[in-house]
């Protein structure tokens, strides 16, 4: 059984936000509009955190792409009263939209604030409504959503592999962010396979994880920027 994980090389990340755009279109994430956005209700499954260091004119900007970290010991699933979020056997923290009652305990429990809440029903411009991804359901108002590591792509890759009577090949299942990254800063693969690209990368001395000390064991690893 695979254990899916992601490695983001901050040396390569230019902060272009292509991953954010790819994620939004792939997963039919609602566009909330200016007014809601100013209230802090922007919906992003993949966000780019920016850190400003130093004072003008010597400013250094650091970028940190942040999807759901798919913790191996996730605080969010422990608080869900209806099991709408759970860890599947391949380590992906899945979100079952029709099961969610919108209590938002999981949002409070998540130390990385990766979850977003649908304050209103999604409303797309006509041109975009015709281009929604049929593999991902559109979420109604009143439920919580977050990055699923594009689990529908895993499902598709598995179905394709079943037709060809083989196992999933490395690189066959990539989330939209990893696939779209122009600098290949985001790598994705099986952490349990010692020969995979990601398990090689996490042996790097530059490897770190967010808030490692709280014991959530995230499966999204970062490679720190070299000075």
């Amino acid at each position: 059984m695979a254990k899916w994980g992601m490695v983001i090389d901050l040396n390569k990340c230019t902060g272009c936000a292509e991953c954010v755009a790819a994620c939004k279109t792939e997963n039919n994430i609602a566009i909330v509009g200016k007014e809601q956005s100013e209230m802090g209700r922007t919906m992003l499954w993949m966000d780019i955190l920016t850190l400003y260091e130093g004072k003008y004119p010597d400013v250094k900007v650091r970028y940190l792409p942040r999807p759901c970290l798919h913790c191996d010991n996730p605080p969010c699933i422990k608080v869900c009263p209806v099991r709408a979020t759970y860890k599947n056997e391949e380590g992906i923290i899945a979100q079952v939209f029709p099961q969610c009652i919108g209590c938002r305990y999981c949002m409070a429990a998540c130390p990385y604030t990766v979850k977003c809440f649908n304050w209103t029903a999604p409303d797309w411009p006509d041109e975009m409504a015709a281009a929604l991804n049929p593999d991902v359901s559109a979420r109604p108002a009143g439920i919580v959503e977050k990055c699923t590591f594009c689990i529908h792509r895993l499902q598709k890759a598995k179905e394709q592999a079943a037709v060809e009577k083989r196992d999933i090949r490395p690189g066959e299942y990539l989330p939209a962010c990893a696939e779209s990254c122009p600098t290949r800063a985001i790598s994705f693969g099986d952490l349990d396979d010692p020969k995979s690209e990601v398990s090689g990368l996490i042996r790097s001395p530059r490897m770190f994880r967010l808030l490692e000390e709280i014991g959530t064991e995230p499966k999204v690893y970062y490679l720190s920027e070299s000075e």
Partner: peptide
């Protein structure tokens, strides 16, 4: 032979 393993995981159908 066909590696049939129907998903009973929530995310098998709800995604």
């Amino acid at each position: 032979e066909l590696n049939i393993n129907p998903p009973v995981d929530c995310s098998g159908c709800h995604r």
